[in-house]
Amino acid sequence: MEHRNANPSIACTVTSCAYHCKDQNHCSLNEIKVGCCDPKVTDCTATECASFQLGGCEHCR
């Protein structure tokens, strides 16, 4: 599945992700899954984007 359009509702600065649209600082997915490392999250460092996939900006041209 190829993702080409930036989703203006999902801001992202993780340029190493395959879904990142570098020139727009947005994600190209329709939705993302946010996960956590601890079942009792008390601060943002315990959360993460579970939709991350290592890649580059080739999906957003």
Rank of each mutant, 00 (worst) to 15 (best):
Met1Cys: 14
Met1Lys: 13
Glu2Ser: 11
Glu2Gly: 10
His3Gln: 13
His3Val: 09
Arg4Gln: 13
Arg4Tyr: 10
Asn5Cys: 13
Asn5Trp: 08
Asn5Tyr: 11
Asn5Lys: 14
Asn5Ser: 15
Ala6Gly: 15
Asn7Lys: 11
Pro8Phe: 00
Pro8His: 02
Ser9Gln: 12
Ser9Cys: 09
Ile10Ala: 02
Ile10Val: 06
Ala11His: 14
Cys12Ala: 05
Cys12Glu: 00
Cys12Gln: 01
Cys12Ile: 02
Cys12Gly: 01
Cys12Ser: 05
Thr13Ile: 06
Thr13Phe: 04
Thr13Trp: 03
Thr13Lys: 10
Thr15Ser: 13
Thr15Cys: 05
Thr15Ala: 14
Ser16Trp: 02
Ser16Val: 05
Ala18Thr: 06
Ala18Tyr: 05
Ala18Asp: 09
Ala18Arg: 15
Tyr19Met: 05
His20Phe: 04
His20Ala: 06
His20Tyr: 07
Cys21Tyr: 05
Cys21Ile: 00
Cys21Leu: 03
Cys21Val: 03
Cys21Glu: 03
Lys22Ala: 13
Asp23Met: 01
Gln24Asp: 10
Gln24Val: 02
Asn25Glu: 11
His26Leu: 03
Ser28Thr: 13
Leu29Gly: 00
Asn30Ser: 14
Ile32Ala: 06
Lys33Phe: 01
Lys33Glu: 04
Lys33Ala: 07
Gly35Asp: 07
Gly35Arg: 03
Gly35Trp: 09
Cys36Lys: 04
Cys37His: 14
Asp38Lys: 13
Asp38Pro: 07
Asp38Ile: 14
Asp38Thr: 15
Asp38Phe: 12
Pro39Lys: 07
Lys40Ser: 04
Val41Thr: 11
Thr42Ser: 13
Thr42Gly: 05
Asp43Arg: 08
Asp43Cys: 03
Asp43Gln: 08
Cys44Phe: 10
Thr45Met: 08
Ala46Arg: 04
Glu48Asn: 09
Glu48Gln: 10
Cys49Gly: 04
Ala50Ser: 15
Ser51Asp: 07
Phe52Trp: 05
Gln53Met: 06
Gln53Lys: 07
Leu54Tyr: 06
Leu54Thr: 11
Gly55Arg: 12
Gly56Val: 08
Gly56Ala: 09
Cys57Phe: 08
Cys57Asn: 14
Cys57Thr: 12
Cys57Gln: 09
Cys57Ala: 14
Glu58Gln: 12
Glu58Asn: 12
Glu58Gly: 12
Glu58His: 11
His59Gln: 15
His59Glu: 15
His59Ile: 06
His59Leu: 13
Cys60Met: 05
Arg61Lys: 14
